[in-house]
Nucleic acid binder design. Structure first.
Length: 258
DNA sequence: ATGGCCGGGAACCCCGGA
């Protein structure tokens, strides 16, 4: 079973990229963030015509998440039941016996902004809900754009990012509370190249100079981590015309317990 | 060459992203 996450930065612009990537990279479950589409504008027909099931929840201009799947999608939950939030950032579903959570964690903008307070509060409520999901579903995968670089090695130039969001001790501590639930960063289960990132700024030739962050993560419960045989960042779509600033991250799971 | 962004929505600039 292949699980992937990709912040597409507007599905309206990136639908051709998504379809091309799925054609070239057979994937069982793709979690998408930043669709930026209200549900009435979601490209349901195009995705279904390509042979996929899909669940989605969106809003105008900002946020919006979707789960694209080869297998039927069951028990869909939109948003965190423990946290009132008009922003559409969370979608959960059960697929092939695996509980999938697709999350678009708030950006935070800057440490002194109210958006940063929102990010920390959102993450605290996210933890409380994921704790329950983990208890209910031994096979749990939480995929998404976390907008947190877990460690300094996930940052192109850690000195440059001191005092910024995405790397603050509070954000990393919030990620740590998810690890404390037993959820493991699939990418770090394996040897990986240095300077591996999943996002690069559009500005200043960020991708060509590999000035990036690794902020798109796949967290796996112990049962799934034990079954995980690979996790890679696919940089190819970042080289295509009119790319998203993020690129897909893919985890491969071997046979799962019944 | 160390800097040259992108998408959406409402206008022809501003906001948000990271």
């Amino acid at each position: 079973m292949k699980l992937a996450t990709w912040n597409v930065n507007s599905l309206n612009v990136r639908l051709p990229h998504v379809m091309k990537w799925l054609e070239e990279n057979p994937t069982d479950v793709l979690c998408i963030q930043e669709t930026k589409l209200t549900d009435d504008k979601f490209p349901l027909a195009a995705i279904e015509a390509a042979g996929y099931h899909v669940a989605y929840t969106g809003q105008k201009t900002y946020n919006g998440v979707a789960i694209v799947s080869r297998l039927p999608i069951a028990d869909v939950v939109k948003n965190n039941p423990k946290y009132e939030d008009p922003q559409q950032r969370i979608l959960a579903a059960t697929i092939g016996g695996v509980r999938i959570v697709c999350a678009y964690v708030p950006n935070g903008q800057s440490i002194d902004s109210d958006k940063y307070e929102y990010k920390l509060g959102w993450l605290a409520a996210f933890h409380d809900w994921i704790k329950e999901e983990a208890a209910l579903h031994p096979q749990l995968a939480v995929l998404g754009d976390y907008n947190i670089a877990p460690e300094d090695r996930d940052v192109h130039d850690p000195a440059e990012w001191i005092g910024c969001t995405h790397v603050s001790p509070q954000e990393r501590a919030a990620l740590g509370t998810l690890h404390a639930l037993g959820l493991q960063d699939a990418y770090r289960l394996f040897e990986q190249p240095e300077k591996s990132f999943s996002w690069w700024d559009y500005r200043m030739m960020g991708f060509r100079r590999n000035r990036g962050l690794r902020i798109d993560l796949i967290l796996l419960s112990p049962v799934l981590a034990a079954a995980c045989s690979a996790c890679v960042i696919d940089r190819e779509p970042r080289k295509w015309e009119q790319p998203s600033d993020h690129t897909p991250v893919v985890a491969t799971l071997g046979p799962l317990p019944a």
